[in-house]
Design a protein around this nucleic acid. Sequence first.
RNA 1: GGCCCCAUCGUAUAGCGGCCUAGUACGCUGCCCUCUCACGGCGGUAACACCGGUUCGAAUCCGGUUGGGGUCACCA
Length: 498
Amino acid sequence: MPAPTNASFSTATGPDVKVRFCPSPTGTPHVGLIRTALFNWAYARHNGGQLVFRIEDTDAARDSEESYEQLLEALRWLGIDWDEGVEIGGPNGPYRQSQRGDIYRELIEKLRDAGYLYESFATAEEIEARNVANGRDPKQGYDNFERTLTEEQREAYRAEGRHPALRLRVPDADLSFDDLVRGPITFPAGSFTDFVVVRPNGAPLYTFVNPVDDALMGITHVLRGEDILSSTPRQIALYHALIEVGITDVVPRFGHLPYVMGDGNKKLSKRDPESNLFHHRVRGFIPEGLVNYLSLLGWSLTHDRDIFSLDEMVGAFDVVDVNPNPARFDLKKAESINGDHIRMLAPADFEERIIPYLSGYISNPPTPIERVILHEAAPLVQERIALLGEVGHLLGPFFTADGELDFDDDAMPGADALLVLDAAAGALSQLNDWAAEHIERVLRESLVEGAGLKPRVAFGPLRTAVSGRRISPPLFESMELLGKESTLARIGRLSARL
RNA sequence: GGCCCCAUCGUAUAGCGGCCUAGUACGCUGCCCUCUCACGGCGGUAACACCGGUUCGAAUCCGGUUGGGGUCACCA
């Protein structure tokens, strides 16, 4: 019989800290999940400890290899590395629970022989019916009644052809722990009941394999979402059993990270595109920006600065500073931070990173000609975008043939722009030294000073002619990049449309 | 419903008993810069959920109320 143990919680600090990230490979990586990975990683790195990356694929019906690959891809993209786990191995492998069946089977026998696990034959319907019959709120769940089944009673169930699940006998005592982000928490005895750890077919459930692997792998700090806060007493109960049978000697410290919320008061759902990490990458978030924003969901570096690098985060991160209340995912703020990080990129780096976002306009890798244009054009947009995905719209016209440029409807000027276009073409055709400063000079002389037009009305039509857009990179630099011939051709082409 | 968690501007947060007539950032907004859009600069807007208590003094500590969320699966 399990004796109520006084848990000895881990006291590991510094290099002895060992955390883990253990997602289930279902669906595409969720930003909340990745935030959890980030905090675990930052905690390990800050302390000079270790991060274990384990896969909890015990639900064959929902798990997928594709999802597993995406998890790897997500962490690599963000620069989150691990010291032990899938892909790289380690002393406690294998790191996919689907491959650890033998380990679990042996442990289940051990725990069962020691009396911590008992057979449970009741179905969910029977448990509910039993509660109703006893005037007990069905929502209270299982009432532990099979704890005391006699061998004869069990035999009778088996004779009916029933196969039992296995439940853990939880202690009839209050269970307390000191949450790293929330402080002391106590669950009164009776508020958590004996729970199923092994299916009738012998397959262990998450409720079993999660604490077991944490114990086997020497995890000292469990940092996870607050959705499993309520199951912590049950896991501690399992830990006590594991300690009793000599599998481990400490219970890890727990820290429950706040939810990442969507609009309203609900968790950011997997159905919401904003929950999908890769959705943000497709739109043009760079890892530096996204990781910076994600770290701000429940944590902050200082009181007056929210743009910082991963290194700075690692240097300052401590899970006890994490805010316990739920954080809303604010796309606008995320984009703003991403824009700041884009502006901090070295020009050559920026140039490389936008190439994939220019597909449809240039080849990847770019041809030598495209490369030359790209090199000149990239600096024109680096400080005006928040998302790399914006480059297509801004730079596309530079990679479009004069005759194929489309003029956006909202950019089309009235027929009176003909005068402007003609005057500009006239002035420009006289210009031989084709540089932005000269282009600007002759255009200002003829249109602004000469014709007395406001800069806005003078240059608007030219912007449309050159870019086809109402909004574009700086006009004169654009003309320089395009070259004299192309610029005049485009001006003529727009004139013909008016 | 039982149990658990949470509660500062619209949002994310700073604040750990006096530095708070509550700071910063995003957002919104006024002005400046300006060939568009951005960037940048200078302003503005807006919060301690409520009620008690402790204290010379409370956003900070305690209790309660209200509100929100989670959990009570042979999912994870």
